[in-house]
Design a protein around this nucleic acid. Structure first.
Length: 113
DNA sequence: GACATGACGATTT
DNA sequence: GAAATCGCCATGT
């Protein structure tokens, strides 16, 4: 069995849980998730969590980008265009692997959840 | 069992 | 103000 499925909620589970809550047409940063789950300095783990759950289609990892709106994790998808394509499908403008209206589409769980 | 690494971000020099 | 460094937790080797 996978270790991260432990009964005790870990940063990974929480990070994944938050990622699952990202509404359509919105994005969030690794740091925001980390901060929301109480692991401000663990933005890395959020990305790692996405990697572990990358086989899980219920986790919209494409809506998670780094703090500047850069699609840093696109290389972990099936193809390099998968992530951007999904985001554009949701009405998010992307240019040069970077979200343009990042501030507008940014989803703050503390305010909107 | 120990060492190195990984979708990042903030702090310090 | 820019560059270098630390922190964080889990996974893979």
């Amino acid at each position: 069995m996978k270790k991260y499925q432990q009964q005790k909620p870990s940063l990974f589970e929480d990070a994944i849980a938050v990622a699952r809550l990202i509404p359509f047409g919105r994005v969030i940063t690794y740091g925001a998730i980390a901060e929301y789950i109480g692991a401000k300095r663990s933005a890395r783990m959020v990305g790692w969590a996405m990697n572990t759950c990358k086989g899980d289609a219920t986790v919209p990892a494409h809506r998670v980008v780094n703090r500047v709106g850069l699609l840093t994790g696109k290389m972990h998808f099936d193809t390099l265009e998968t992530m951007q394509a999904l985001l554009e499908k949701e009405g998010i403008e992307i240019q040069n692997n970077q979200i343009q209206n990042f501030k507008k589409v940014f989803w703050n769980p503390s305010e909107e959840l």
